[in-house]
Design a protein around this nucleic acid. Structure first.
Lengths: 142, 142
DNA sequence: GTTCCTGCAAAAGCTTTGCAGAAGA
DNA sequence: TCTTCTGCAAAGCTTTTGCAGGAAC
C-alpha cells in the first residue's frame, strides 16, 4: 500500500470508506509508523497535528479499517489492542524488557500440522516473547 | 501434573503457595477442564460448589498461578483473558463459528527464523483462526 | 499472636454507545 | 437537503486495589 494522500484516498474509496481528513491521517500514520501502536499512542501522536481529534474517532476509524480488512488487530497484549497494517504473513516478537514489538518473516508452510487437515484456516498469528538482541547485549555490558 | 487433591497440594507447596481450598479447587478445575476458560467461566462453574467464592479470589489465584509458571494466559481474544495449564508447547485454533478453542501439537523447530538468532525466546504462542472440521461439515450438509 | 487469605466494595483502564452538532455529497 | 462523520459524555466490561474480617499456622 502506497502512503501518499492520493493513494490512501483511493484505497479507502475502493473499500467504500469516505476518505475524511481524520481517516486519511490515521491510515497515513499506520503506514508510516509500523510500531504496532495502541489506540492511545495513535491518539496522542495525531492529537498534536489535529487538536480536535477525539479518541472515539480513533476507535471508530480503526474498527472500520479492521472490518474492511485493511488493518489487523494483534492480541499479543492481554489488556489493550494493538494495530497492524495488513501485509504478508509475519510473526511478532515482543521484548519483555523494552516492550518493543519486532516483525519477522515466517515460513507458514512448516507450521500447519496434519491434525488441521479438515480445518479452514483464515488467519494465523505467531508470536514470541523474550529478550531482544539489543537488550540482551546491554545487560551483558553492565 | 496429576489431579488428585494430594498431588495438587504438593504442586502448590513446591511453589510456596499455600494450598487453600479455593486454590486447590481452581487448580483442579483447570486440570480437569482443558477448555481455556475465562475468569467468568471458572467463577460460574465453581460458584455452585463453593457459594462463598468471589471473583476477586479467582483473579488473585490465577495471577498467583501465572507468576508461579503453573498456568499461562492465552491472548487469542482481545477482550478477555483465557487460561491454560502449562504443558508442552502446543498451538491453538479458534473456530470463528462455534468459538471453541482446539489444542494442537506443533513443531517449534521449524518456526524460528534466522533473524531471531540473537534473541532469547522465553515464550512462544501460535494460533490460527478459521472454521473447524465439525462446523465445516455441518455447513456442507445444509 | 501473627501472618496470610478471602471477598466485598470501590476504583481504574480500555472500549463501545447515544446523541447532537458539523461537515460533506 | 439529506446522509454521513465527528467528538463529547456516559455507560459497559474486565481487571485491579483497598481493606476488614476470618482462617491457618
Amino acid at each position: 500500500m502506497k502512503s501518499s494522500i492520493k493513494d490512501i484516498s483511493d484505497t479507502l474509496l475502493e473499500k467504500d470508506i469516505r476518505p475524511s481528513h481524520q481517516r486519511i491521517k490515521i491510515m497515513e500514520f499506520l503506514l508510516k509508523n509500523k510500531v504496532h501502536p495502541t489506540v492511545d499512542y495513535i491518539y496522542n501522536e495525531l492529537h498534536e497535528e489535529i487538536p480536535t481529534l477525539s479518541k472515539t474517532t480513533v476507535y471508530n476509524t480503526l474498527n472500520l479499517f479492521v472490518n474492511a480488512n485493511l488493518v489487523k488487530t494483534i492480541s499479543i497484549e492481554g489488556n489493550e489492542a494493538r494495530y497492524d497494517i495488513v501485509t504478508e504473513d509475519h510473526a511478532h516478537f515482543k521484548c519483555l524488557k523494552c516492550n518493543k514489538i519486532y516483525d519477522f518473516p515466517i515460513d507458514t508452510d512448516g507450521i500447519v500440522s496434519k491434525e488441521l487437515n479438515d480445518f479452514k484456516i483464515s488467519e494465523m498469528d505467531v508470536f514470541f516473547k523474550g529478550i531482544c538482541a539489543k537488550c540482551s547485549n546491554e545487560s551483558k555490558e553492565n
